[in-house]
């Protein structure tokens, strides 16, 4: 369809693609974080939850396919938009101090690729097991504890999730703008929603390696 092709060819359309795939990925990250909180309820509970997720392989792979597709679209659109913006200022300023640009916005272009690399490591560590020191298939609780007991690995998880929180904060706020959800009186809620979910997801994820490292969970 030529209209949607024109739409997706525009930077505005590509940003909408990033927003929509971002919402789906955000939903996953939120569910992932909430599900993983069961680690505080003990090995049996967490392993049972993992079994439940693995029970229907067809559904599992359908969900994984959707997520992978979203990641791919998100990245391709991001690269296209980034290249266009880079080309828009071929000669740099000698002095350039644009006001109001916050840390999260400025680092999106770095937090994105770093998070992508982290996800690959995370999958090899706790899903495939090939980057894990002592991987036991099915014993998720053991795998998490063993992995996070290595201080360097635990710190990688903490750092990556800190970046993820920043990425989500700017992404969540940004997507309201991109999709055009704004209101003269309620527009401020968008910032609050972004902060709330970024902190919630960041704190929930970071707490687990810290809990293992400090011996709260063992």
């Amino acid at each position: 369809m030529s209209h949607s092709a024109g739409f997706l060819g525009s930077t505005l359309g590509k940003k909408v693609l990033m927003a929509v795939t971002g919402i789906i990925l955000f939903g996953f990250v939120l569910g992932h974080m909430l599900g993983n909180q069961q680690i505080y309820l003990g090995a049996e509970r967490l392993n049972h939850y993992a079994e439940l997720l693995q029970a229907n392989q067809a559904l599992l792979w359908a969900v994984r396919s959707v997520l992978l597709f979203c990641v791919a679209v998100h990245i391709v659109a991001a690269v296209q938009v980034w290249l266009r913006s880079r080309a828009a200022r071929p000669v740099r300023y000698r002095v350039f101090r644009p006001p109001a640009v916050d840390y999260a916005a400025r680092t999106m272009v770095w937090s994105g690729p770093i998070i992508a690399l982290f996800i690959i490591f995370h999958l090899l560590d706790l899903t495939v097991g090939s980057a894990h020191p002592n991987y036991i298939r099915g014993d998720v609780y053991h795998n998490v504890i063993a992995s996070f007991s290595q201080p360097v690995v635990a710190l990688v998880y903490v750092a990556a999730n800190l970046l993820l929180a920043f990425h989500l904060y700017h992404g969540l706020w940004s997507l309201f703008q991109t999709i055009g959800w704004d209101h003269p009186r309620f527009g401020f809620v968008r910032r609050a929603v972004a902060v709330l979910f970024a902190v919630l997801i960041g704190a929930g994820n970071i707490a687990i390696p810290l809990a293992v490292l400090t011996g709260v969970v063992r």
Binding site: W82, R86, R89, P99
Partner: peptide, 14 residues
């Protein structure tokens, strides 16, 4: 040859 929006908000500030 304009770039895309990253919602930096520098435009609004200046």
């Amino acid at each position: 040859a304009f770039g895309a929006c990253s919602n930096f908000r520098a435009c609004e500030a200046v």
